[in-house]
Lab assay of single mutants.
Amino acid sequence: MADQLTEEQIAEFKEAFSLFDKDGDGTITTKELGTVMRSLGQNPTEAELQDMINEVDADGNGTIDFPEFLTMMARKMKDTDSEEEIREAFRVFDKDGNGYISAAELRHVMTNLGEKLTDEEVDEMIREADIDGDGQVNYEEFVQMMTAK
């Protein structure tokens, strides 16, 4: 299944994987998964984290390695993001709930994920998604960005 991913997608997933893999040992533990999910405003229980890991832990060693992570991402993409997942993601970014993602809100979430971005990089990300040019990202623009192939 992971063989249907483009090189660009694999590179993006590698970057995402390293955000989860806090200690850089090449595997994601339940603790690391929990840290990232909490930084995104989720509050999973230990059991939920274990279930999430077990779902993709092909070799049964209790952690997720990069090939397992790729399989999980490929699977998720095949079920292409349901509207509800996209709306949920939008809410994570839209901290003040005004229906727009500002540069400050984007920077806040990315920083929580451990991504240190310059102001230019954040502005560039907003510009790429900002179709109507108002300097922020509304829900429609967010959907376009998330579903762009």
Rank of each mutant, 00 (worst) to 15 (best):
T6S: 13
K31M: 09
L40Q: 14
N61E: 05
G24Y: 07
R87E: 14
I86T: 12
T45R: 11
A103E: 00
D94S: 00
F142K: 08
V143A: 12
E120L: 09
P44W: 08
F13C: 11
F17D: 05
E105Y: 06
L49M: 09
K78S: 13
T71K: 13
E12K: 10
E84T: 01
T45F: 14
I53H: 15
D123K: 06
A47C: 05
I86M: 00
A11K: 14
T80D: 07
A103N: 14
A16N: 00
T118W: 03
K31V: 02
G114C: 04
A148P: 07
G34L: 11
V122F: 02
I53R: 13
D25C: 14
V122T: 15
E140I: 11
R38T: 12
A58E: 14
D21I: 02
L117H: 01
A58I: 02
H108L: 12
G24T: 09
E140Q: 13
A2C: 06
E128H: 09
T29K: 13
D134Y: 04
G41E: 15
M146L: 08
G97M: 14
I53V: 13
K78V: 00
S39R: 12
A74S: 10
V109A: 12
T35N: 06
E124N: 12
M37T: 11
G99P: 00
K78R: 12
A2M: 02
Q144K: 07
T30I: 12
L49V: 14
L117K: 01
N54D: 12
R127N: 11
I64E: 05
E121N: 01
P67W: 08
L113T: 00
K149S: 07
L33Y: 06
F69Y: 08
A74Q: 05
H108I: 13
K14F: 00
E141G: 12
T35Y: 02
M73R: 10
F93H: 12
M52F: 01
S18E: 04
D51S: 10
Q4Y: 10
A58H: 09
L19T: 05
V137A: 11
T35L: 05
T30A: 13
L19H: 04
D130I: 01
I131L: 12
K95Q: 13
E105N: 08
K95Y: 03
V36M: 09
D134A: 05
N112G: 15
E7H: 03
F17V: 09
M146R: 02
T29R: 04
D79C: 14
E46A: 09
T29A: 12
E85A: 08
T80A: 13
A89S: 13
D65M: 09
M125A: 07
P67I: 08
L106N: 06
E32D: 13
D130A: 03
D134V: 06
K149V: 04
R38H: 02
A2V: 12
V36C: 07
M77F: 06
H108K: 06
T118N: 07
A47Q: 05
T6D: 04
T35E: 06
Q9L: 13
I28V: 09
Q144M: 01
F90H: 07
E8D: 11
F66R: 05
G34W: 02
G34N: 05
V137L: 03
D79G: 11
Q50L: 14
K95N: 05
A104F: 02
F66P: 02
F93P: 03
D130N: 10
E121R: 10
E124S: 09
Q50E: 11
L117V: 05
E46Y: 01
M125Q: 05
F69I: 04
K149G: 06
L70H: 01
F66Q: 06
D79W: 14
T111A: 12
I64K: 01
A47F: 03
E115G: 10
V36I: 12
F93M: 04
D96W: 06
D65R: 02
K76I: 09
S82T: 04
E15Y: 08
K22S: 10
K31H: 14
T45P: 06
G133S: 02
R87M: 05
A58Y: 08
R38P: 06
E88Q: 11
D134M: 09
G114W: 06
L117M: 00
E121L: 00
Q144T: 06
L19F: 03
E115K: 11
E15C: 04
K14A: 04
L106S: 04
V109S: 05
A47N: 05
F66T: 02
E15P: 02
E48G: 13
F142R: 06
E124A: 13
D51Q: 08
N54I: 09
L106C: 04
L33N: 00
K95C: 15
R87F: 12
N138G: 07
L40A: 15
A16V: 11
T30V: 03
G97D: 11
G62V: 09
A89C: 05
A148G: 07
F142N: 04
T27A: 12
L113Q: 02
D3K: 13
G97K: 15
S102R: 11
E128C: 04
G135L: 01
G133E: 11
E12N: 09
F90T: 06
V109M: 10
I101D: 12
D23P: 04
L106P: 01
V109Y: 04
E68H: 04
T71N: 08
G41C: 08
G99V: 08
D119L: 08
R107V: 05
M145S: 05
D134E: 13
T45W: 07
I64V: 13
E88D: 11
F13R: 01
Y139W: 09
I10N: 13
T6I: 12
E120D: 09
I86R: 03
G133P: 01
F142A: 04
E141I: 05
M52L: 10
I126Q: 02
L106M: 04
A47R: 11
F142E: 08
A89R: 00
V109D: 01
I10D: 03
